[in-house]
């Protein structure tokens, strides 16, 4: 069930990525529609993070190419933003929340230019969107996990890009932050932005995403959520690893359970 779309925002063609000559992603061919909230889902080690990193050219690829907005990546850097995994940076770094959010403006500023008032305003506005405006001068080492994630999100928002890649934004955050983030992501989608999210929680997936990419080294499925999240495809993705999964898939399909209790 791999659905290709017309006029895709992201086009991945025959992408293979290897670590140390061992392929971790094999022959990925997919297209993603504009203005969608896309979930990339699969078991641990399936290459979910690798896929989005390869889409942004952060990793050397063995074969294949990626086009974004029908252009090579180099020409559209300013329209792309990235929210890396929270653990990927040192949170004891001597920087304030505002310093980090302002980094979102660096790409547009270009070489030798200092941030101006417009950039400071954009950073403050982004902080307000994630509800962290009161923390602008706070040291980043004093933040909780959820607050760190909001700061990263604000940094991406400050960039005002058209496509956002997010690596596990819901990992290890409190429920209030998770709700706040998903609301924000929906808002962004409604503004016509494309948001691609690496996600590990199957339960919430059907509720959160419009489009789901199922991945386990190979591409198992890519299509609208309701067509993709079914037992057969989930079993193909997760293999026989968990019998529980088929039950979860069943329940999800029948919608007996809400994906998460609404607060």
């Amino acid at each position: 069930m791999i659905l290709q779309v017309k006029n895709p925002v992201v086009e991945v063609h025959d992408l293979t990525v290897s670590y140390d000559r061992k392929p971790v992603l094999w022959g990925i061919d997919l297209t993603l529609p504009a203005g969608a909230l896309v979930g990339v889902i699969g078991p641990n080690g399936a290459g979910k993070s690798t896929l989005i990193k390869a889409m942004m050219n952060l990793l050397p690829v063995s074969s294949g190419y990626v086009r974004i907005f029908d252009q090579p990546l180099k020409q559209v850097y300013s329209r792309i933003s990235y929210v890396p995994q929270r653990e990927s940076v040192d949170w004891d770094f001597p920087a304030s929340v505002f310093d980090v959010v302002l980094m979102g403006r660096y790409g547009q500023l270009g070489l030798f230019k200092r941030p101006r008032k417009a950039d400071n305003d954009a950073a403050m506005e982004a902080l307000e969107k994630v509800g962290m405006q009161g923390f602008a001068n706070r040291q980043i080492s004093q933040l909780s996990g959820g607050q760190q994630q909001r700061v990263f999100l604000a940094r991406a928002l400050a960039q005002n890009a058209d496509i956002y890649f997010m690596d596990e934004p819901f990992a290890g955050v409190d429920i209030a932050t998770e709700t706040a983030i998903i609301q924000l992501l929906r808002l962004m989608r409604d503004e016509g932005k494309t948001v691609i999210v690496v996600h590990h929680d199957l339960q919430s997936a059907s509720d959160y995403f419009d489009w789901v990419v199922l991945l386990n080294m190979r591409l198992v499925a890519s299509g609208p959520t309701e067509q993709v999240l079914n037992q057969e495809l989930l079993e193909q993705t997760y293999g026989g690893k968990l019998t529980l999964l088929s039950k979860v898939g069943d329940l999800l399909r029948k919608q007996e359970f809400p994906a998460r209790e609404k607060s």
């Binding site: 990235y82 990927s88 040192d90 070489l111």
Partner: peptide, 22 residues
């Protein structure tokens, strides 16, 4: 002074820097 932004960003978060084209 001239490269402050880029030096600061590539030191703090190289992956993000690369993603936005630095």
């Amino acid at each position: 002074v001239l490269g402050y932004k880029e030096l600061f960003l590539t030191t703090f978060d190289p992956a993000f820097a690369a993603a936005i084209g630095i």
